[in-house]
């Protein structure tokens, strides 16, 4: 159980690099100032991750439906 969680975190980290790049471009379009995330930035990042994963689910569903 402990191990499983570690592995999840490791492979999640790899995916996180890609997603951070994608969402950085979407959520930090202007000048950066301050050292902490503000509420807008936090919300944008969470939405970005979740919509990206919605789109992944949609892709799988759509590809499956195309086979039939």
């Amino acid at each position: 159980m402990r191990r499983a969680q570690e592995n999840e975190t490791d492979s999640a980290a790899t995916e996180t690099h890609q997603l951070t790049q994608v969402c950085w471009t979407k959520c930090f379009t202007g000048n950066v100032s301050g050292s902490k995330l503000d509420k807008t930035e936090e919300g944008c990042l969470a939405n970005c991750v979740n919509r990206f994963m919605d789109l992944n689910l949609l892709t799988v569903k759509h590809l499956n439906s195309m086979r039939h």
């Binding site: 969402c23 979407k26 979740n50 919509r51 990206f52 789109l55 892709t59």
Partner: peptide, 20 residues
């Protein structure tokens, strides 16, 4: 599939909101 998802997210979700 990986590249398709990245390109289509880029094109179709310019400002990610609370749902798709």
């Amino acid at each position: 599939i990986e590249k398709l998802q990245e390109n289509c997210f880029q094109k179709c979700v310019p400002k990610p909101g609370g749902s798709l």
